[in-house]
Design a protein around this nucleic acid. Structure first.
Lengths: 192, 192
DNA sequence: TTCAAAAAGTGACCGCGGTCAATAAATAAT
DNA sequence: ATTATTTATTGACCGCGGTCACTTTTTGAA
């Protein structure tokens, strides 16, 4: 037993998380300031960093939680069988991912686990995204010359590409969904 | 004539850029500090920000210049005709793009032009990357059910995916090139 | 109940990017 | 040449993330 976690600790952490959510609700993820959070939570700044390694670590938790919920919902729906249905199934996730520029940048930065021993919440969500799509790929009627896991990786790559272009002024004509549809039809149902 | 640029201005800017390159050579892009640059250039901090909107703007210039040179070289070589040759042709570019985590993150952040009127150096390079690959796609013997520009966008998307995974501890087994080869063979030469 | 060790919390302080009113230098007008 | 106007430079200052020596609280052994 190497875990004598004090009740006080949990309470403080909960206060910090709750205060963070309030601040995000008011100012967005981008607008969150650590000083604002600790003031609202009624603790000192140093306490914040005793609970979270840095500001990004808190953001990972907040954003990861939201993403987890959306993944739960996506998983609960009926499995998509066409490209259109696939895009619809992922829509809420992609919309949240691109809700703020700051959020998208942070997602990209933490989409891969920096070290095996510490897979953060966001890297975990990307892994889940991949697994969910992989299952869909295995059960839908897409190309069969390539294994489902590779198809899923491609879906992820093209989704990220589509989302990136959403923030790009040069590609304003098309919506994110339209672009993704073009990509995925070429990727999932090639017509040589 | 709305451009009475003083000679002094150009000189100061050149000093700042030169000093920046020295600092990068010594400490890497990640290690560059504005205070270090201005000290080395012998100007005040405020002067830096009169010449560059922010630190990122300087980084865009430095990294964009390097990328431009690499694109020149890639363009000068013989056009790749196979997936293997394609990867080789892009190798030096991808290697530089992933030379530092900081560099890769910055590239992603500025790969798209935030506003049409101000296409930054990095967004410009991504556009060039796309155009170069598009020409290769048009002249090589890859799948023909999809236009070259779409093929090129896919190459970019998969390249970014491969590079991202380079920083991910979960995918250490494969090299960036091996991953990219698997992606691009599935993307460019599907065998339904 | 007492007390020492461990854990949690504090806030003054630092690093560094970025700002801006004041100053100096260059250019144009007389 | 002298003055007026524009342009470039300066450095004290600010915001905000992050640190750390110190204090307070909790815990567990005596």
């Amino acid at each position: 037993m190497q875990k004598p976690i004090q009740k006080r600790t949990l309470k403080t952490r909960a206060r910090l998380l709750s205060a963070s959510e309030d601040v995000v609700a008011r100012d967005g993820y981008q607008g969150l300031r650590v000083e604002e959070v600790v003031k609202s939570a009624g603790v000192a700044k140093g306490t914040f960093f005793a609970h979270f390694h840095d500001k990004d670590a808190l953001m990972e938790i907040l954003i990861g939680e939201r993403l987890s919920t959306l993944l739960d919902q996506a998983e609960a729906e009926v499995e998509p069988k066409t490209v259109e249905e696939l895009i619809t199934a992922l829509d809420s996730i992609h919309t949240f991912m691109t809700s703020e520029r700051y959020v998208f940048d942070l997602l990209l930065r933490y989409s891969g686990a920096a070290a095996i021993e510490e897979i953060g919440p966001i890297a975990h969500c990307f892994e889940r995204y991949f697994r969910v799509v992989e299952v869909w790929m295995a059960n839908a009627d897409f190309r069969k010359d390539v294994p489902p896991d590779l198809l899923a990786e491609g879906v992820q790559a093209f989704s990220i590409q589509s989302m990136s272009l959403k923030f790009c002024a040069l590609h304003e004509a098309q919506t994110m969904e339209d672009r993704l549809e073009i990509y995925l039809k070429a990727w999932l149902t090639p017509a040589m």
